[in-house]
Design a protein around this nucleic acid. Sequence first.
DNA 1: CTCCGCCTACCAA
DNA 2: TTGGTAGGCGGAG
Length: 166
Amino acid sequence: MKTPLVQLPVSTRDGQFIARYSENGLAELSFPSVGRASSRAVKPTGIPASIRRWHRATEAALKAVLAGRAAKTLPPLDWSGKTEFQKSVWRALRKIRPGQTKSYGEIARAIGKPKAVRAVGGACGANPIPVLVPCHRVLAANGKIGGFSGGLNRKRELLAREGVCL
DNA sequence: CTCCGCCTACCAA
DNA sequence: TTGGTAGGCGGAG
């Protein structure tokens, strides 16, 4: 099953994120919507114990990263339906520690596709689990901020909390 | 096949 | 430094 079965809110200092789970794990994490936090999140009765457990991990991990610290544990991530290229990029992103940064080119080389620089940017933009899969730690080669699907301000803030100076 | 993008290196002002 | 640009590659339609 690819469609998320359960969608649960995560309240943080930055607002209410939404986590979506499939039977295989966390499939998607959304930034707080600019609009009001109307609980669009459906909270079906009888949430599987496994998902409740994953959600606790998600909450702890998200709060840690938002505070500039490393997440101790992550719930299983469901990347089913995604391409091998994207998964290889996201795996590489997970190796970047808080406070560290890499360029799109470095990621491209790390996954053995040195010329797929721009495509790496595309994969970052398609990252379904931002923050926990730290695409915000990837900068342009010249040390510039680069882009960010969640908004550059957010990227700057996340990096600042990790002690990264631009 | 075409078009677009969280890029880059390079060249001209 | 700033600005324009061609090359390259994966993803979406």
